Structure formats: C-alpha cells, structure tokens
Amino acid sequence: MRLSALLKPVGSIFKHTCRRYLNAAVQPGLALNTDPVLPIIDFSSFANQNETNDFYPRDVIEKLANACEHVGFFYAIGHGVPNELLLRTLSITRQLFDLDDTIKNQYASRLFTDPSKIGHTRGGFGRGYQSLGENVTNTKRDRHEGFDIYRELERDHPLRLQYDNTNVINQTLPDYRELAIGWNPWPKELPLFKETIAEYTTAMLQAGERVMRGIALSLGLPVDFFQSTFNDSFWVIRCIRYPSVDASESKSPEYGHGCGEHSDYGWLTFVNQDLDSRNCLHVRTNDTSNATYVSADPIVVEEQIALTCNIGDIISFITKNKYRSTRHCVVSPAKPARSRVSTPFFFEPNLDVKLQINENASQCYYGEYLINKVRTNFNYYNDEAK
C-alpha cells in the first residue's frame, strides 16, 4: 500500500487507580513537570473491526485524537495483554541480563555487522545483545544494556526468498536484505526467553491492531484503513536494562542518559516497564529550547497494568504533523533504586510498505527507512576493549 495517499486530510496487582509515581528526585539537567498527566484511554471497544464506524464510542475516539494531537503519549488500557504475561516478560528479561557477560557476549549484535556473514540460521544486523554504552543517541553512549529482537521472516516468505544467494548482487532489490534474511540469536542458556517473547509478541500485535483501529477512526477514516500496512508487521522488541547510578556517575562526557532524547520511527511504541520504575521515562511537553518533561511512570487502573503508548514519526508525517511524535528519554534510576527493566514493543509496518518519510524525500520501502535508522544506532567497542 502506498502511504502517500494518507497525506489527504484526514489481576489484582495493586488495588488503586490512575496513580503516577513522582517520588524520586529529579535528575540533573531535566526540568520535570508534574502536569499534565498522560491521558488514559480504554481500547477494549476496538478488539475487532467487524463493526461499522458508528459502533465505536465517539468519546473514546475524540479523547484519542486529542491525546495524539497535543501529547503524542497516552496510557493504554483495555489492550488485551494479561498482567501475568507483562510481568513474566519483564522477569525473563531480567534473568537474561543476569547471565554472565561471557554468555551474553556470545549473542552480541556486534558479531553480525558484516552483511556477507549473516547466516541462514543465526544472526542478523542489529539483532542480539549490546553491552553498556554500545547504543548511541545524539553522539553519546546510552547507559543501558540491550537485546534487540526483530521479526523473523519464515523460510518461504517471499521477501526472504528474493534475497537468496543468486539474487544478492541484484542492485535493483530494496536495501533491506539484512533485515529480511536475519535470524535472532536466541540464548540457549535461557530457553524460556524465546518462548515468552513469542507469547508476548502475539499479544502485543493484537494490542497494536486495537490502537491502530482507534487511530484510523480518530482521523475520520474507516476502521480497517491501516490494516493492509501492518498485516505482515515487521515488529521490533528491545529488551533493556538500565543500571542505577549515583550523582557522580550521571555526569560523564562520554555517556548521556539511560537513553538519550529521541522520537520513535514507525507506527506505535508500547512500553512495558517495571512497576517500581520511578521518574525514568521522561516525555517532553514542549518544543521550545526550555524543555520541560512529565514522568510517564507505570500505572495500574482497576487492577489492569496500563501500557505506555506513543505514536511514531510515520504517523506524524502522514498526518502532516497534526499528530505528535513526541521526543522522550530515559533517565537512569537513581541509587539506591534497583536497575530498571523494560521491554518496549515497536508495532511497525510491513517491510515492503511504500512511504514518503518527509517532504523532500522520494518514496521508499519501510525496510529501507528502518535499516538506515538502525545503522546509526551503535558504536561498538573494539575487540581490545572487550
């Protein structure tokens, strides 16, 4: 589907509700604002698309439109992902990062930077483990460990087959071969990790579909308008651990925050984060030089864990910036708090969806857009440093 056409106008975890955690001290360099609170939106009505547009609640649609236009972030409830699965995903992710460094580095993404060495069973550009500081944002090393997981295309998937060995030198193919043929280096020492991520992915894809139906309706479009753009979604998961720091560690010429300020690339991001995470995910509330932020801490609404959701750059562009792709960052937890674990799920278009990413660029495939973003994300240490 050509997205240029879119440029037309267009349980019982805690027994409390809608509570934000702003108890921790503000980190240096960030002016934290306690207002406004991120909107809370219930997507339970969007569980299926087999109804006419008039079936869906107008008040929820209007609330979503207002959130996308003025905030770009919101808390999603009624997303359909069980609390137990959200917590289990965080738990297995923490177990992954608790593995010995020697084990984790067997699955390091730095091992798969040479496109010619990406095999048929293991590895793929950007996939796998990154040690502290290998991710880079705004020229500074991010203070976190990561493990990146990308959609694996089936062996008989048409986009994988077009990059078989006989076609590698065909320069007319889109420039996303490493994404199309890559495999995730699943750690054999933790077999439940792959199993849990598979279950998490299935649930999050369904949550993404609910929200995208709401987005379509909020733009005055048919409920299934975007369906063909993500029916083969090239989703991405980042498993992340942010070590806690003290005041002296937070001031470094080489390192920035846990993750530097940025906006996200594609359709939607869902953040699943430790429930005890305080004052870490900071959402920018304005576009001026005197930036202020609101802390998007986890909340539980009527015994349901809310997912923190934000829209990405593509939605912002196709709506001519009516909907905001809001910049945000992650500040490292302050000691004595424990390290922070999160598993953001990036709900993305299909690799072969055509889009135009800005006014001055020609149309490209989403896969080309994504891989060019990923190529600037890392600054691997040399072998001697490891």
Rank of each mutant, 00 (worst) to 15 (best):
S218Q: 06
A216T: 09
F234P: 05
T288N: 12
V271F: 08
I315E: 00
G214Y: 11
P298W: 04
G260H: 10
K335W: 02
S332G: 09
V353G: 10
R324T: 12
I215E: 02
A291Y: 05
E303D: 15
G260V: 14
D297G: 11
A247D: 14
A306H: 06
G258M: 04
Y323M: 08
L268E: 01
D313I: 01
S295G: 09
F226Y: 15
C280Q: 03
G260Q: 06
S295H: 10
V353N: 12
R284N: 13
D246S: 12
N272W: 02
L221R: 14
H328F: 02
K251R: 08
N321F: 07
I215H: 02
E348V: 04
Y293N: 13
R278H: 15
N310W: 00
G266Y: 00
I237Y: 03
I315N: 00
R327S: 13
D287H: 10
L268G: 01
E302L: 00
V330G: 06
S248W: 04
T269R: 08
C259N: 07
H282A: 14
V331L: 11
A306T: 04
R238N: 09
I215S: 07
S244W: 08
Q227A: 15
L219M: 15
R340F: 06
P344W: 05
S339P: 13
Q273G: 13
T319V: 09
T229F: 04
Q304W: 02
I299C: 08
G312T: 08
T308I: 15
V245M: 12
L219V: 00
I305M: 08
K335L: 13
D232G: 14
S252N: 14
S252C: 12
P222I: 09
F225Y: 14
V330S: 05
V223S: 11
N286R: 09
I305N: 06
W267A: 10
P222D: 15
P222Y: 05
C239M: 13
G220N: 09
L221H: 10
N290V: 08
G266F: 00
I237S: 07
G220S: 11
F270A: 12
F346C: 11
A247W: 03
A216G: 12
P243Y: 07
T319K: 02
D274P: 03
